[in-house]
Write a protein that binds this DNA or RNA. Structure first.
Lengths: 230, 230
DNA sequence: TCAAAAGTGTTCGCTATACACCCATGG
DNA sequence: CCATGGGTGTATAGCGAACACTTTTGA
């Protein structure tokens, strides 16, 4: 029998973190899922996550998971909701603190984890374990809200990108289409992009300007009380 | 010695909910605090909160706390962040799921709780127990963000209110001042207010129109894809 | 020379803002 | 009759949305 070494006067729930890892493949918003190797929901796809250690904050725990699954040590990660339905885990009471992370698919290394992992378009995922469908939906909603007010989209693109790539990203996240010229103007007027000297040949087509996100000028604007709105 | 009846293979944190209860006194945004009767931080003011029961969701727990402190069974309540710093409680590992609630001060009954409770202006609270200063600050920030996109301010006012009261509320929350005429026009154009037939005499002055929030027309607009923006 | 995609500028309508006068009430 | 504060409308500027032509390159 297992040794039960930890004793409390009152019952305590288990606490986990789960992480919705978003990536962009140039066309669609994708999410990284892992296949469960153990019961319950063995063989089902699920969000990467795990138990919170007693000496780490939730964000530290979520970053640990992120690293274990993608090999990435930086990147945007944000806590967005804690899921606490008493029935959400069939075994015992488990509450989970949910995060979403934005990563560059190209920089992702296979996880150390033996678990099978894969990218899926967010609008076409298989049935997930536990309440992870709900968590994914909530994360997508939050990302959509967030991108109106914070320049987080750049975390999903290479450091240097074309305007068209950026437009596709916004369109994929928000589920709308923009007029190309208006999008260009609006983005440039925000003043948070730096135009690079180099141009890049598109897939056997002509040359396009490259841009990069300019965090300094964004911080500057934010300090001056500027409220980004896209 | 206490009886330790609950046993686990791995250590589990304690989980609490804390609730930032906002009220509006006509001039300033206020928060309900309770005085702690036990160590640690005995005698310090703190946010109402308590341990999550094993068979209730976090929101149910937070509503229970809300009722115990204010006697209110309805009202707006929203989870906004979970605080997990390992050092946030000096006794043991405690994570807290934080909510904010919006109530009408006038409807608040004294809590059943023996604890001393009181309203404080959010910009002038005493030093709080634990990390409750931080939680309060974060709640205020969230409320400010939220009120731009959701018609939640009405939860803080009487059912019937004058335009001036509504303006004062928005000004108190956002920390700005509005032009009276523009505020009137903007609010009325949103189409979520019903003008009542009755007028009310202001404090020994003339008569003013009364309005009430119209949730039906708001739901209708929301379904049509209208995005409220104030 | 033709197709595909990038770069660029103008017009128009709407919305946000700034602003002033009249009226009702109570003292 | 005077002071206080509520109710109302207009003029202007800035922003967002709609929109077309030219240029480059590879096939």
């Amino acid at each position: 029998m297992e040794e039960l070494k930890y004793h409390y006067k009152y019952p305590h729930p288990s606490v986990t973190t789960d992480c919705v890892i978003f990536g962009f493949d140039g066309t669609k918003l994708n999410v990284l899922l892992v296949e469960r190797g153990v019961e319950p929901y063995k063989g089902r796809w699920a969000l990467p996550g795990g138990f919170l250690k007693m000496d780490e904050s939730a964000e530290t725990g979520a970053r640990r998971e992120l690293f274990e699954e993608t090999g990435l040590k930086t990147g945007y990660i944000r806590q967005f909701h804690t899921f606490t339905d008493p029935e959400r885990d069939p075994r015992e009471r488990v509450i989970t603190i949910a995060f979403y992370a934005l990563v560059r698919i190209s920089e992702v290394q296979g996880g150390d984890d033996a678990a099978q992992a894969g990218w899926f378009p967010v609008d076409n995922v298989p049935a997930l374990a536990f309440d992870h469908d709900l968590i994914l939906r909530r994360a997508t909603d939050e990302l959509r809200k967030q991108i109106h007010f914070e320049p987080i989209g750049f975390e999903l693109l290479p450091e240097q990108f074309t305007m068209k790539q950026l437009q596709h990203l916004y369109e994929a996240i928000l589920g709308v289409t923009f007029d190309r010229r208006n999008f260009y103007n609006k983005m440039l007027k925000l003043g948070i992009l730096t135009e690079l000297d180099e141009k890049v040949p598109l897939p056997n087509r002509k040359l396009a300007y490259l841009y990069k996100f300019n965090p300094e000028s964004y911080s500057e604007m934010k300090e001056k009380g500027f409220r980004l709105e896209f």
